[in-house]
Computed example of a mutant assay.
Amino acid sequence: MEVAFSTADVHPRDRFDYWQAATRERIADHDSSISSRDGFNAELSVGRVGSLGLVRSRNSEIQVASTNRHAARSDPSEVLLFCLLAGRILLEQSDRRVSLDAGSLACVDPRLAHTMHFLDQSSTLIIKVPQTELEARLGKNFDIAACRIAPLGPQERLTLFFAAKLEQLSGTLDRTSEETISTQAIDLIALSLGNAVDRPTQLPASKSRLVWHIHRAIDARLQNTDLTPERIAERVGISVRQANRLLGTQGSSLMRLVQTKRLARCRHALEDPRQIHRSVSDIALGWGFSDLTHFSRSFKRAYGILPSDLRKLKESR
């Protein structure tokens, strides 16, 4: 994580204004207010692990309000997860109010107005999760606004522990490892969110868990060329028809999901400087593709470039 802004470098009279400008740029558009500018201090660090954007915020007591006007200018492709490491936060969104203590996490939908009150000297890790990643696991109609994960059970405690440690991994791993870690983090978060929500969703918690198990069954055998819908469904304990029906609500299917995951792994390998010694065919075969012509066509359809051309582009830089 790299320090992007610190009030220690700013004159006391300008600290709050500079801080608000920095958080608008790095997190989301909003209005902030504080009871007194005297003694206000804050620091912002940024980083990334795979598909997850990370912002670490340490700040004095502050109130944040995102109105409908702000929400209209937000990035609709991201969901914000506030993992509280120290202090306390009061969050209100969609007529729901939750209180976060250290060691808990809450979702904020940046497309909806909300208010947050950071009490005391707080330390928060904001995790930016691609909207499509959560939708792939929980469905498009899953209501994440002010959804809270508390350390009530072993699974939730694992999720929160994993989430809080992400900042320590930023900048320490190769790209392929980062993508693997970020996928596992999103899996855990999605599973805990599915367990935490007791209101109707597109996929009930039981179905959300089945989708999660489908993803895990595929990931564990992605390198096998004989990975078939029947083998995946058998591993999960459901029929192929049921599995495809579950994935169909998310615009996917068993084999489409397998191909998407394989293509993503191949792209990461082709862009990884540590794997420059591997040929394109070796990478494709290593991730379960048996037909190299089909692989090249599918890769170009997905990413707009042939795998061989992507490799040449990376080698020329």
Score class of each variant (00 low, 15 high):
2 E>K: 05
4 A>P: 01
5 F>W: 11
6 S>D: 10
9 D>K: 08
24 R>S: 02
28 A>M: 13
37 R>G: 15
42 A>P: 06
47 G>T: 04
47 G>M: 05
54 L>Y: 01
58 R>D: 11
58 R>G: 10
62 I>F: 06
67 T>A: 10
68 N>T: 06
72 A>H: 13
73 R>C: 14
74 S>L: 06
82 F>S: 12
94 S>Q: 08
94 S>V: 08
95 D>F: 04
95 D>H: 15
97 R>H: 08
97 R>S: 02
98 V>R: 06
100 L>Y: 07
102 A>Y: 13
115 T>F: 11
116 M>K: 07
117 H>M: 12
119 L>F: 12
120 D>R: 07
124 T>I: 15
140 K>L: 10
141 N>G: 11
147 C>T: 03
148 R>G: 01
148 R>I: 03
151 P>H: 03
157 R>V: 13
162 F>I: 13
163 A>I: 03
168 Q>G: 13
168 Q>I: 03
171 G>R: 09
171 G>N: 10
175 R>L: 14
178 E>F: 04
178 E>Y: 07
179 E>A: 12
182 S>D: 05
184 Q>P: 14
187 D>P: 05
192 S>C: 10
203 L>S: 02
203 L>K: 00
209 R>F: 01
219 D>N: 12
220 A>P: 02
221 R>S: 04
232 I>L: 01
239 S>Y: 00
247 L>W: 01
249 T>L: 07
253 S>N: 15
261 K>G: 04
263 L>T: 04
263 L>E: 04
271 E>T: 14
272 D>N: 11
274 R>F: 08
275 Q>E: 15
275 Q>K: 06
279 S>N: 12
284 A>R: 03
286 G>D: 08
288 G>Y: 00
289 F>M: 00
291 D>Q: 10
291 D>V: 03
296 S>R: 12
300 K>Y: 08
304 G>F: 08
306 L>T: 14
316 S>W: 07
